[in-house]
Amino acid sequence: MNHLGTFLIRMGNAAVLLGSVLVLNFLLIHMAPGDVADTIAQSMGGADAEVMAQIRAEYRLDDPFLVQLTRYIGNVLRFDLGHSYFYNEPVTDLILRRLPATLLLVVTAQVLALLVGIILGVYSSRNPRGIFSHLITALSLFGFSAPVFWTGLLLLIALSLRLPLFPVAGMVDPTLDGGVWVRALDIAHHMVLPVLALSSIFLALYSRLSRASMMEVLESDYIRTAEAKGLGNTKVVYKHALKNAVSPVITLAGLQFSAVVSGAVVVETVFSWPGLGTLAFEAILARDTPTILGILFFSSLVVIVGNLLTDAAHRLVDPRLRRRG
C-alpha cells in the first residue's frame, strides 16, 4: 500500500542518515588530538611509554582506522556502545539512565513553546494592534537576542535565589519521600525554570510565525466562504483558519527540533539537570570517547525521531500529503 511504501522509504532514509552520523562522529573524535591512553595515563598521574603501549593494546587503539570503525559500527548495531573508562560502566546503561531526564526537558519545552506560541499567535492575529501583539514582538526581541544560558542564569537569580520559588538545581529532592504523585510534583517543580529557559526562544519563534501565518490565512477565499456559510467566529478561526495556518509552524518546529536538543545541553549544565547534556559536558572534559560517541549517537537518534514525528504531524493536517507520495 501507498502509506506503507512512504513509511518504509522514510525509515530507510532515517537509517542511512543515522549510519552517516555514526561514521562522521567516529571520524571527528578520531581526528581530535589525544586519545584514551593519554587520558588514562593522566588520571594515573603520568605513565611511561611501556604502560602507554600496554593501554593502547588493551583498548586496541593501534588497529587501522577502518578496522576500528567497522568494529565500532558492529558493536553499535548490537546496542553495545562500549565501556566508559571514566564512569566505569557500559555506555548504553549510562545513557539510558540519563536519557529520560533530557527527553522530559526537550519534549516539555518543545510542546510548551508550540502550544503557547500558537495560542498567542492566533490571539494576536485577530487583533494585530492589541496587547498580545506587542507582547509577542517584545518576547521575540528578547528570545532572539538572549542566549539560552543567560536566560537560564537570569531566571535562576530572579526566581530561585532572590525569590526562592523554585529549586536551584537538580531534578529531584533526595530528602523527599512520598508517593508517585508527590515525586511527580517535585520533578515538575524542578522543571519549571529549565523548561522556561529552554522554551523562551522557541516560543518567540513559533508565536511570530503563527501570527503571520494566521493573518495570511484569514485573508484567504475559503475563510470568506466559511463566513458566507454563516459559521460562528470560533468555527471560522479554529476550524477553518488554524488547521491551514499551522502547517508552516509544524515545519519550523521540525527544523528547530535539533536546536531544542542542543539548547537542552546548555540548560542542563546551567541547572545541573541530570540528563545527557551534563553527561556530555563531563565526558568531554574527561575525554571519555565512548561516552561522547554514544551521546552523539543518541542525540542524532532523538532528532531523527523528532523529524519523523514532524512528518507524521504534517500528514495529519494536510490531506494533500496523505494521498499519494
Binding site: S220, D221, E227, K229, G230, L231
Partner: peptide, 26 residues
C-alpha cells in the same frame, strides 16, 4: 441573526472555485 441568515436564507458562490473551498477538509 445575520449569521443565521447567511448560508441559510441567502447563499453565495464566488468567482474563484480553485481557492474558495478549504483545502484541508473533504
Amino acid at each position: 441573526r445575520m449569521r443565521s441568515i447567511r448560508g441559510n436564507e441567502i447563499g453565495m458562490i464566488f468567482q474563484e472555485p480553485m481557492t474558495s473551498l478549504n483545502p484541508v477538509y473533504s
